[in-house]
């Protein structure tokens, strides 16, 4: 019994992690292709058909690059920071339900677990910036940690409405609560009763991801590359992987909380779930290709004076409706 449980869990973890890491590799390809298309370029096209082998070529290149640690860097923290960034991004998937019975573990405080883990991603960035012993890296690290702390609040508040609607913090139960439909045609997804919550979630998760238009942390025109300026080879790649893994996690969370997770007619549940996640990922890429970067004071003002009050109002209105 014990052995079977262990074996099944390990297999599930291996499957999910393999899937996520593969998706991370091919997201780099997707992003370059999509942005290329939107800017009337080809994007990667030389390595393999449609440039499909590009991520593998990139990985090999990154592994064989010289690994440089700056002279006055704090070696221990410098080495620790990339891992501290990637690990939280990956362990979020432990509670995400991929299908009716396909979830690594159904914790009854699943959503809180996600926020607890997601709030740790800041450490990798801020420590990377500090340990590099470089002005640009430190500024980038401080900027992005301030940004992430600010937007975390509205991110967490935006899903309180969903929790109140469902009456549960378990992601499995939240998905199950979205089964069925209204009047036979409109699916009972949380996006309809919680549309404002959904918008706030989308904007603040984009900001949490440090992606354009919120990519102040690595504003290349002013900060070289932000917190990972001094990183090279595979350690740099870990930051990159963390960004994409976080993007998938944000998409998966949005699909689970607002779009009914794996619920959907005709197609198998896992396919539905992956389609929804893909839609969100495409949206994030699209946003990056479309919008110019915020100015720093605009970003802070928007987070604290617009998003946070809006999220609070959403909680109040939801409570009034449910009471």
């Amino acid at each position: 019994m014990m052995m079977e449980f262990l074996l099944a869990t390990v297999l599930k973890i291996a499957l999910v992690m393999g899937l996520v890491l593969l998706a991370v590799a091919y997201l780099t390809w997707l992003e370059r292709k999509v942005i290329g298309d939107m800017q009337v370029r080809f994007g990667p096209s030389r390595v393999g058909p449609f440039g499909l082998l590009q991520p593998i070529a990139d990985a090999i290149k990154l592994m064989f690059k010289e690994d440089i640690i700056p002279a006055h860097a704090d070696r221990v923290i410098f080495l620790l920071a990339p891992a501290l960034t990637l690990v939280p991004a990956l362990i979020i998937f432990a509670v995400i339900p991929f299908g009716p019975s396909f979830v690594i573990t159904d914790v009854n405080i699943g959503l809180l677990y996600v926020f607890a883990v997601a709030s740790l991603g800041v450490y990798g960035i801020v420590l990377a910036g500090w340990a590099s012993n470089s002005k640009y890296a430190l500024l980038g690290g401080l900027r992005s940690s301030a940004q992430m702390v600010s937007y975390e609040l509205s991110l967490a508040l935006s899903v309180i409405g969903v929790v109140m609607w469902t009456g549960s913090l378990s992601l499995v139960e939240i998905v199950e609560g979205q089964a069925g439909s209204w009047y036979g045609i409109v699916p009972r997804w949380n996006i309809f009763p919680q549309f404002f919550g959904f918008l706030i979630f989308l904007v603040s998760s984009n900001a949490e991801l440090n992606r354009a238009p919120f990519d102040l942390a690595e504003a290349e025109t002013e900060l070289v590359a932000g917190y990972h300026t001094e990183y090279s080879s595979m350690k740099f790649a870990l930051f990159f992987m963390a960004e994409y893994a976080n993007m998938i996690a944000a998409g998966a969370l949005a699909a689970t909380l607002f779009l009914g997770g794996w619920q959907g007619p005709f197609l198998p549940p896992v396919i539905w779930f992956l389609l929804k996640v893909f839609a969100f990922i495409f949206l994030f890429v699209w946003l990056r290709a479309t919008l110019p970067r915020f100015r720093y004071d605009q970003l802070m003002r928007f987070g604290w004076k617009v998003l946070l009050p809006a999220a609070l109002a959403n909680v109040m209105v939801t409570a009034a409706l449910l009471a």
Partner: peptide
């Protein structure tokens, strides 16, 4: 997630 981040900051 919150207090120690501020400390580090």
């Amino acid at each position: 997630g919150a207090i120690m981040v501020l400390f580090l900051f």
